[in-house]
Structures are given as structure tokens and as C-alpha cells.
């Protein structure tokens, strides 16, 4: 805990991403469950787990938070085709990626900027595929897919491809 004072800016950003994603997740769960603003199960407990994950990203709090979020989501959500699932998936993706990177890099070290570009592209690609899964679930449950979502999904995949392509191009030019 005392080591946290040596945090680099990049590490602080990763941990901030964990916290803000947890806050977003709590808001989503609470909004879906239609509970009071300080409900223990949908707000306070996830936030507490989020704070612990932020402080100790390498500790078992991360899987506990994510498993809890998945279980609570299935409990509070009645609409199988809701776009909220996609949002919850995106927030879980940010929490997992940020925790994995925060654990992999020494506390005080500043990772190279290329790492952000690489992971931004990867996350966009994962999100694009997740959107495909969500669209398949909507089709499976007999709900139509709105045209705007298709456009959003296509844009996400294009951004992911562009970012990954750029990262690779930059890397090739520097090594050559």
C-alpha cells in the first residue's frame, strides 16, 4: 500500500480506468435494477471491490469483482437483448485490461507510448467482435438489430483495424 506513492502517471491512469469503469458498472447495475442510489448490492459492494481492484490489481479482487458483476447482471437484467449487456461487456474489458497491464508493469515505471496504441487497437477489435456477438444474441432472441448499431459496429471494427495497422507500420519503420 505504501508503494502507491511511487506510482507513475501511466500506472495512475490505469488504476483510474479501473475505478471509473467500476463506477460506470455500478451505475449500470443500479439503473437496470431500479434501486436506490446507495443500494448495497448494486452500488456499494461493486464500488468497494472496484477500489480494492484499483489498489491491488494483481490480487484476487479483480476476478471477484468481475464474477460478481456477471452474476448481478443476470439477476437484475430481464431484457436479454438490451444494449446494456454490450456496455457491461465494454466496462469489464476495460477493468480486465487495465488490471492486467497494471500488474505487468512495475509501479514506478512509465511504459512506452506504443503500448497504449497497441492496446487501444486490441480493445477496439475485441469490442467489435463483442458487438457481433450481441447482434447474434439479438437475432437469436427474435429482436431486430437497429441500423445505427450496425454502423457503430462497422466503425469500431474499422477503427480497430486502423489502429492495429498504424501500430504495426510505426513498428516496422522504427525497426527498419
Amino acid at each position: 500500500m505504501s508503494e502507491l506513492r511511487y506510482l507513475s502517471i501511466e500506472q495512475a491512469l490505469l488504476r483510474a480506468a479501473i475505478l471509473f469503469s467500476t463506477v460506470g458498472l455500478s451505475i449500470l447495475l443500479n439503473w437496470t435494477a431500479e434501486q436506490g442510489a446507495f443500494n448495497f448490492w448494486t452500488v456499494l459492494l461493486p464500488l468497494g471491490l472496484g477500489v480494492l481492484t484499483m489498489i491491488f490489481p494483481q490480487a484476487p479482487w479483480t476476478p471477484v469483482l468481475m464474477v460478481y458483476a456477471v452474476v448481478v447482471w443476470t439477476v437484475v437484467n430481464d431484457d436479454l437483448a438490451t444494449a446494456g449487456s454490450l456496455l457491461a461487456a465494454a466496462l469489464l474489458l476495460i477493468i480486465h485490461t487495465s488490471a492486467a497491464l497494471a500488474s505487468a508493469v512495475p509501479l514506478a515505471a512509465s511504459p512506452p507510448s506504443g503500448l497504449w496504441v497497441r492496446y487501444a487497437g486490441r480493445c477496439a477489435a475485441v469490442l467489435g467482435i463483442t458487438t457481433l456477438v450481441w447482434m447474434a444474441v439479438r437475432v437469436f432472441t427474435g429482436t431486430t438489430v437497429p441500423g445505427g448499431v450496425v454502423a457503430l459496429m462497422l466503425a469500431t471494427v474499422l477503427i480497430a483495424a486502423a489502429v492495429l495497422g498504424y501500430e504495426r507500420w510505426v513498428n516496422r519503420t522504427t525497426t527498419a
Binding site: 468481475m66 464474477v67 458483476a69 456477471v70 452474476v71 447482471w73 443476470t74 437484467n77 431484457d79 436479454l80 437483448a81 438490451t82 449487456s85 454490450l86 457491461a88 461487456a89 465494454a90 469489464l92 474489458l93 480486465h96 485490461t97 475485441v126 469490442l127 467482435i129 463483442t130 456477438v133 450481441w134 444474441v137 437469436f140 432472441t141
Partner: peptide, 24 residues
């Protein structure tokens, strides 16, 4: 956990939520 809930519990929305982790 998500696959179990999704398949056994018949909750495809759980599959959407855990889809990024499966891909990762």
C-alpha cells in the same frame, strides 16, 4: 462462470457480457 450461466441458465446476455474475456 459466464458460459455456465449463459448455457445452463439460458441467459445469452451473460454470454455477451463475458464475450471480451473469452476473446482475450
Amino acid at each position: 462462470v459466464g458460459v455456465l450461466i449463459g448455457v445452463i441458465g439460458g441467459r445469452p446476455d451473460a454470454l455477451v457480457v463475458i464475450a471480451p474475456l473469452v476473446i482475450i
